[in-house]
Computed example of a mutant assay.
Amino acid sequence: MKILVIYTHPNHKSLCYAFLEKIIKGSNENPNIKELQVLDLYEEGFNPVLVFNENKRRRDMYCDPQLEKYRKQISWADKIVFVYPIWWGRPPAMLMGYIDQLFAANFAYKDKKGLLPEGLLKGKSVVCVSTMKGPTRYPLFWLNNSHKILMKKALFNFVGIKKVKFFEFGNMESPKGKQTKKLEKIYDYFKKI
């Protein structure tokens, strides 16, 4: 199995970064994982801003040479892991900008007759590891599960990815947030998948 981890947090002393370290450690100890790549969007200096003009058209994003490296990473991976905080009920703008540009028509999906397109990323799976200040059940009860619906139905299922696993960790700024236990849960998951 080949894993691409997309890390989206500006601080390497954050809890998100501690989760990234556990993912790397568990993956390195797992004989089923043959290769691991990490893409740190902030460290990479990824530009999340969409630009469309007479030279850069939306319909051509699938072949934009500036995004070729990232398309190759997605194509290469069997499993894509996203590590990010939930801010204002959704992933950071940096990650959404990456998604807007990379999950483009004719790369991630292809329009066809009918209501839904053909997903071109079939066979891949996704794991989302997210942290938030609020309670764990906050997205479910107060936001009608909008985070999971956005990520699973509006994005991953749309592009053909059916296997999506979520780890949403709440109360992460609380002294009673059980951070160590949650970090070990992620380590164990990646050590055994």
Rank of each mutant, 00 (worst) to 15 (best):
M1K: 13
M1W: 05
M1C: 07
K2Y: 06
K2D: 14
L4W: 10
V5S: 06
Y7G: 04
H9M: 08
P10E: 12
N11I: 07
H12N: 13
H12Y: 10
S14T: 10
C16K: 00
Y17A: 01
A18E: 15
F19T: 03
I23S: 15
I24F: 01
K25H: 04
G26L: 11
P31I: 08
K34W: 00
Q37N: 14
L39R: 14
E43W: 04
E43R: 09
E44P: 01
E44N: 14
F46T: 12
P48G: 10
V49L: 14
V49G: 00
F52R: 08
F52L: 13
F52P: 02
K56C: 05
R58E: 11
R59N: 09
R59M: 09
C63E: 14
E68D: 12
Y70T: 11
K72V: 11
W76Q: 05
D78V: 09
D78I: 13
I80F: 09
V81Q: 07
Y84E: 09
P85Y: 08
I86S: 03
I86F: 05
W88D: 06
G89W: 01
A93S: 15
G97S: 10
G97H: 09
G97N: 08
G97F: 04
Y98I: 08
I99S: 06
Q101P: 03
L102G: 06
F103E: 06
N106M: 12
K112T: 15
K112S: 12
G114M: 12
G114P: 12
P117A: 03
P117N: 04
P117F: 04
E118L: 13
K122W: 03
G123W: 13
K124V: 09
V126S: 05
C128M: 12
V129K: 00
T131V: 08
M132A: 00
K133S: 13
K133N: 13
T136I: 07
R137L: 09
R137T: 00
P139H: 03
P139S: 05
F141M: 06
L143I: 00
N144K: 05
N145M: 01
N145H: 01
N145T: 00
H147T: 02
H147N: 06
L150F: 15
K152G: 01
K153H: 14
K153Q: 12
N157K: 14
G160A: 10
I161A: 06
K162H: 07
K163V: 09
V164Q: 03
K165A: 03
E168L: 15
F169Q: 00
G170K: 01
N171V: 04
E173N: 15
S174W: 04
P175D: 09
P175A: 02
K176N: 14
K176W: 08
K176Q: 13
K178P: 00
K178M: 11
K182S: 05
K185Q: 15
I186W: 09
Y187N: 05
Y187S: 05
D188A: 13
Y189A: 11
F190H: 10
F190Q: 10
K191R: 15
K191A: 11
K192F: 03
